[in-house]
């Protein structure tokens, strides 16, 4: 474990907590894409298949349970909770996430570290995580008013993967044979997808104006 990875995990945890806080306290999910939340639930479900078979550490297991629990409960809130679901913007959140899942699955079948169920699912979860934010970014472009919590949520979500890139660089130089091209490339693509959001987020923060993304 290195400081970059810990910072990445904590940032990722904060992004989930910010979202849960928003949904649980103000009982609203305005501006949040259910499609992205469902994709994240699928990412964690396919990535943590080994949660009960391969024990890495207490930290690893607890974090996996938190990410699984929070992502599924957010989907539950947005689908089932009578108050929260009312604030869900169904008309605007129209990204057909099936068109993200299928290519990721096909790519995982072709490009994986080992053609076993677990490894294909691992590769699938990495490719899917890289593109899972797209429905959310599309929704942000459409709904002009981005409230602070949603902006912070997306920002933290992007920052966590950026920290992970530093973690991979660090591990590459400090651990022999630490080479995971699939993880590195999908992590890089994922972070690049946030690039323009970061640009507008920093500008709005610097000029102290409300965050809005150009059409």
């Amino acid at each position: 474990m290195n400081i970059f990875r810990l910072a990445g995990d904590m940032t990722h945890l904060m992004s989930v907590l910010v979202l849960l806080l928003k949904i649980h306290t103000i009982k609203s999910c305005a501006g949040i894409s259910l499609k992205t939340q469902e994709l994240y639930a699928l990412v964690f479900a396919t990535r943590y298949l080994d949660i009960f078979t391969d024990f890495i550490s207490v930290y690893n297991t607890i974090m996996k349970l938190i990410f699984l629990g929070s992502s599924f409960s957010i989907v539950w809130y947005m689908r089932r909770h009578k108050l929260v679901r009312r604030s869900y913007d169904k008309e605007q959140d129209t990204f057909r996430h099936f068109f993200l899942v299928l290519p990721c699955l096909l790519l995982a079948l072709v490009m994986n570290e080992k053609f076993t169920f677990k490894e294909v699912m691992w590769a699938f979860s990495l490719y899917l995580e890289a593109v899972a934010i797209l429905p959310q970014l599309v929704l942000l472009q459409r709904t002009k008013n981005i409230d602070n919590l949603t902006g912070q949520y997306v920002f933290l979500l992007g920052a966590y993967r950026a920290f992970y890139i530093f973690n991979w660089i660090y591990r590459y130089f400090t651990e022999p044979h630490y080479v995971h091209w699939i993880t590195w490339i999908s992590g890089l693509v994922q972070t690049l997808l946030y690039a323009d959001f970061f640009y507008y987020y920093f500008n709005s923060w610097k000029n102290n104006v409300k965050l809005h993304l150009p059409a």
Binding site: I56, N60, E113, E119
Partner: peptide, 10 residues
């Protein structure tokens, strides 16, 4: 036999 890679990252 080739060791199964355990992915230790979240």
């Amino acid at each position: 036999e080739e060791k199964e890679t355990t992915h230790d990252e979240l």
